[in-house]
């Protein structure tokens, strides 16, 4: 079936998920059959109430959890052999930047991905400088991670992933905990990035401004999937799944 679908489209989907289920070791069913396709260059919002399974889905797409069902990335089924390679093409930014930034300095953290990708040192240095400038963080390299403000931490977290030059960005609540100015700034910076994006968020204004397509998740299932404008104007849908208009 998937072969047939691939034939229909000129470009291969970046992310393709069929019948994905996931149960946590303690028996909690977080995902109960997810179908989702994301084409290259698409910017997709993943919304839904707390506990809907958004973070779980992103962790599976980054190859960090293993669910049942089919997960294809760039046309290849995700398995133990290609998972390391896939992780370098898909960058996940965690919800809590204190989890993402685990090195003492900003430089060490942004250099981490390129270093483990086995790049030569000059290239690592170049990547760090480039990723920091993309996030408007020139001059932050020697700063200590624990001295940064929340907004700066969030931007550094995105930079740690950008330095790996991923094709797809998975962002888990990028704007939570930011003041309006930091939030604006981050949205502006994200809008500049060319990557395919899947953004899990509760921030409906971010959705309206940045992400043309929206997927609504509730109880581990996809309950709606379509253009953001349409979904945001469907009062019943929004109310049924605990969402608000921006």
């Amino acid at each position: 079936m998937s072969a047939l679908r691939e034939g229909e489209r000129p470009m291969e989907a970046c992310v393709e998920v069929r019948g994905l289920r996931f149960t946590y070791p303690d028996g909690r069913e977080a995902l109960r059959g997810i179908d989702l396709t994301v084409a290259p260059g698409e910017k997709v919002a993943l919304v839904g109430p707390n506990g809907a399974g958004k973070s779980t889905l992103l962790l599976i797409l980054a190859g960090l959890l293993h669910g049942e069902g089919e997960v294809r990335l760039f046309g290849e089924p995700l398995d133990d052999r290609n998972v390391k390679r896939m992780r370098s093409r898909i960058g996940l930014v965690f919800q809590d930047p204190d989890d993402q930034l685990f090195s003492p300095t900003v430089f060490d953290d942004v250099a981490y991905g390129p270093l483990y990708a086995g790049l030569p040192e000059e290239e690592v240095n170049r990547r760090v400088a480039w990723a920091l400038s993309q996030m408007g963080l020139e001059g932050f390299a020697e700063r200590l991670s624990h001295h940064l403000s929340v907004g700066e931490k969030k931007r550094v977290a995105v930079a740690t992933v950008l330095s790996m030059r991923p094709e797809v960005l998975l962002l888990d609540e990028p704007t939570s905990g930011l003041d309006p100015r930091a939030r604006r700034r981050l949205i502006g910076l994200l809008a500049e990035l060319p990557q395919t994006m899947l953004v899990a968020t509760h921030d409906m204004r971010l959705v309206a401004e940045l992400l043309p397509r929206t997927v609504v998740l509730d109880g581990g299932r996809v309950v709606a999937d379509g253009p953001t404008a349409e979904i945001l104007s469907d009062e019943h849908l929004l109310e049924a799944h605990g969402l608000e208009r921006p």
Binding site: R87, D98, D99, D108, A111, L115, N125, M164
Partner: peptide
């Protein structure tokens, strides 16, 4: 639990059990 999340964040960026640093 934080250490588990950090471990995942490291894996996501290519960690393979070795310690690597720039010279």
């Amino acid at each position: 639990e934080r250490s588990e999340r950090i471990y995942m964040a490291m894996l996501a960026r290519g960690y393979d059990g070795t310690v690597r640093t720039l010279s």
